[in-house]
Design a binder for these strands. Sequence first.
DNA 1: TGCAATAATGTAACTGGTTACAGTAACCGG
DNA 2: CCGGTTACTGTAACCAGTTACATTATTGCA
Lengths: 339, 339
Amino acid sequence: MTIKSNSVTIREVAQKAGVSVATVSRYINHNAPISKDVAERLKLVMTELRYVPHAAARQLASQKTRVVGLLLNTLHNDFFVPLLNGIEAVVRKHEYNLVIATYLLGSRDMPPPIGPHNTDGMLVFSDGLSDDDLAALNDRKFPMVLVHRTPPDSLKIPSVTVENKKISFEIVNHLIKIHGRKHIMLLRGPIHQEDSYWRETGYRSALEANGIPFDERLVLNGDFERNTAYKVLNEFITAEKQIPFDAIFTGDDDAAIGVLKALRENGCRVPEDVSVVGFDDLGFSAFLTPPLTTVSAPTEAVGRIAAEQLFSLFDKQSPEGVTLLPTELVIRRSCGCNK
Amino acid sequence: MTIKSNSVTIREVAQKAGVSVATVSRYINHNAPISKDVAERLKLVMTELRYVPHAAARQLASQKTRVVGLLLNTLHNDFFVPLLNGIEAVVRKHEYNLVIATYLLGSRDMPPPIGPHNTDGMLVFSDGLSDDDLAALNDRKFPMVLVHRTPPDSLKIPSVTVENKKISFEIVNHLIKIHGRKHIMLLRGPIHQEDSYWRETGYRSALEANGIPFDERLVLNGDFERNTAYKVLNEFITAEKQIPFDAIFTGDDDAAIGVLKALRENGCRVPEDVSVVGFDDLGFSAFLTPPLTTVSAPTEAVGRIAAEQLFSLFDKQSPEGVTLLPTELVIRRSCGCNK
DNA sequence: TGCAATAATGTAACTGGTTACAGTAACCGG
DNA sequence: CCGGTTACTGTAACCAGTTACATTATTGCA
């Protein structure tokens, strides 16, 4: 390429200030004493020349990218707004950069877009990475923190997530005990997704505890996404042979929106005919029609804590195992209560 | 530093495959012919060694980062979910990485976290950057596309945003003409923010067209954020001297949530006592209590198109000026209509 | 006063790729 | 059979920083 980089280099700064490049580098990184007048001179020269160190050169020489990655499988959920906010705030505080990438598990032909080659460590959300990839990176001592996922047994990777099972038991139990619901549908999240798994487990144990047989036909497969939720439920309702149901545990609030839409369009009243409950307590959930009974999850805190743990890994601190943040029931009107 | 980088280098690959590093590089970049058997050998060796090129080294040598940046002032709005999705999809398609950073205009002491030193170009959302910074970067021919903001007169930077004024006129006009509202409050977005400005302009012209005097006291300052909206409106309502109002144009749907909360808590019925209308038509807006009358904006398309324009700038294509995407009225129940 | 520790700075090797330049071998039309 | 392409490959300079090592000046303390 013949395009000359028009950016100012450290050597120009050094020359103009009458010092060596090493001194300039030390000044930039504050990692060695610099005499006061040299420091002042450098400060002047650097602002005058509008010098900004070339990131790639720094990264190559120092073997540090000052970048953390966030690997997801999707961004299609309002859930990610608080999560991102938590993460971004911490990353910014540490003066790092944040790279976001989605990586679908299907795409095994190409390597993940982020990893040791371009970040110092990363946050892996849910199924952003396969167990194998996780193990390979862990072998190379690449700093990682899992978010909404616990590590495979053999790997010691810190993990931050929320309590799913007990609270799912509670919310389903609430539908049964308080509202007398007996035909409770479960709208699952993605298969094999961990939150989805534990929420289902809680759901099943609530049924069992109340002597209600588990009915496979009342389990729908969603993906924590409102459009899918709408489509799946709509198909279910308009199917030929009707299976009666009187409540839906939607798995997450975003899907609840799709569920409410499908119910409304099919003339089902919420909560009179069908109770609906969600999970996450997103910002809008209190304002839905009707206000959504759900589980409040500290999503921003999850992001914040996960990011903090990643930075503590950078400082060679020991991993903290699984951090399970508490969740709590938020009773509103969509279950049948009349707050 | 004594920590040896444990990553595989191009030289190891070259040696193991019995070729020179130049050949390996050419194979990686597909920019020169490679004999078939060498290509096959390299493919094998690279997967066997799990070789991933060192991003910083590539960047330094090629003067390309393969990274695009997105600079925002905040992430606190569900609006950003579709925007991010649009952007991310395009970035991924081009096999680039996406860096996200928030940069508050107040922080003039430190330079923006992303720029020519670590990206090939960037998307600047709204007030993510000052006019001065914009001009400086533009002088250096740094590729940029503005999102939800038009460039200062003197700068030719492509810009992608949505039509605000005409549609704001229409929605306020609707409140007046159809519902007979006369004391319409405006909950502004951030001062000096462009969407906010044009929405206000549309609001004012609708008042004027209907012979309703503009009343400064009915203008509240928000920031397109639900908590602020709640706080500001709540203070207004509970203030000592009451100023009557019968409608609110909230400026955006996320703020509408805060507005609905404040109204509900103060015993105002929507839409009986007060009409509420928003802007953006976020995923949840159809499901609020009551369903929100709003303006649908093609936010995902904005992200997609802006990103595409950035990539076309990389190819030295000419900028496209201001791209103004159409918006349309979405009438639901919160204005008083009874769909 | 002498000697070690510390402060401040410079020289140059090194990071892991890309690519200009050069060179060899095979191919091709006349 | 010959000069000109074309296909393929290698050598080594270069990108813009960091840092080990060396050097000199200064300070502290016995």
